[in-house]
């Protein structure tokens, strides 16, 4: 319970700080953010959009790991965890896409312009979509679990290729991700604190949601087993 209270207050503070702290050109106190040239207030999206995308990737990896676990042990619980993670990942993926598209409209002038980042999130959306289409077309539980695990492993392996391929084809306008190509974090300390706490908060919310859904699906599964007996 303590953790939930901390999470509730913490994320509220992050939201207030991320949106309301004034942006000045020369931040002198801890409660002022630096102005990002060319972006101004639009730079505040970093506190909300990047954590969503981060959670989306984390969820994808969780789903992949539980899928592999399922293939090794054939324990249906792992499949439940794998689907739950994939479902939440899909949700966060949509959120990241929508927030990104709105931001892109006001910064680049169009909702969608096939920037490498947009291409990669589009591929992630496609993979999630195909994953759920595959699941809904198989009725037998074990078969569904193992086939979708196999599919997510193959799909997960193609993702690294995009990292090599996309930069060869187009260059990106996207602001540097958390860590820039030189491997350095370049943010003002206030920004960094807000950003990192937002990242932790979002991950905690994801974990909480994941936990709730897994518990619920477990109950549902137990109930089904009882009815069959």
């Amino acid at each position: 319970m303590v953790f939930k209270i901390i999470l509730g207050i913490g994320l509220t503070l992050v939201i207030i700080a991320g949106i309301a702290l004034p942006m000045v050109s020369n931040p002198s106190s801890f409660f002022e953010l630096p102005v990002v040239p060319g972006l101004e207030d639009k730079a505040r999206i970093i506190f909300f959009h990047v954590p969503t995308a981060w959670v989306c990737v984390i969820a994808f990896i969780t789903s992949l790991i539980y899928g592999i676990q399922y293939l090794r042990t054939k324990e249906i619980l792992y499949d439940i965890k794998s689907v739950t993670a994939a479902g939440l990942g899909f949700l966060f993926c949509i959120l990241a896409t929508v927030t990104g598209a709105i931001w892109s409209k006001f910064t680049w002038g169009a909702f969608w312009n096939w920037d490498p980042r947009q291409t990669s999130i589009f591929v992630l959306l496609l993979i999630y979509g195909a994953y759920f289409a595959l699941r809904s077309s198989i009725e037998v539980e074990e078969k569904r679990a193992s086939l979708s695990a196999v599919y997510s492993i193959i799909a997960g392996l193609t993702v690294p290729f995009f990292i090599f391929i996309i930069p060869r084809i187009v260059s990106s306008l996207h602001p540097d991700p958390i860590i820039n190509p030189q491997g350095k974090i370049h943010m003002n300390p206030t920004m960094l604190v807000i950003f990192l706490s937002s990242l932790t908060g979002f991950t905690a919310v994801y974990y909480w949601m994941f936990n709730l859904r897994v518990r619920f699906s477990k109950l549902l599964y137990q109930q089904q087993m009882k009815e069959q007996e």
Binding site: V123, L126, I127, G129, A130, A133, L134, S137, I138, E139, K143, L147, Y151, I154, A155, T158, F161, F162, I165, I166, R168, I169
Partner: peptide, 23 residues
Amino acid sequence: KSNTKGTLYPVLSFPILLPLLMI
């Protein structure tokens, strides 16, 4: 092994083949 055999095929293949097609 799935129920909808033909229709799902391009849907499942596309994300997997996309890096290859791009290059």
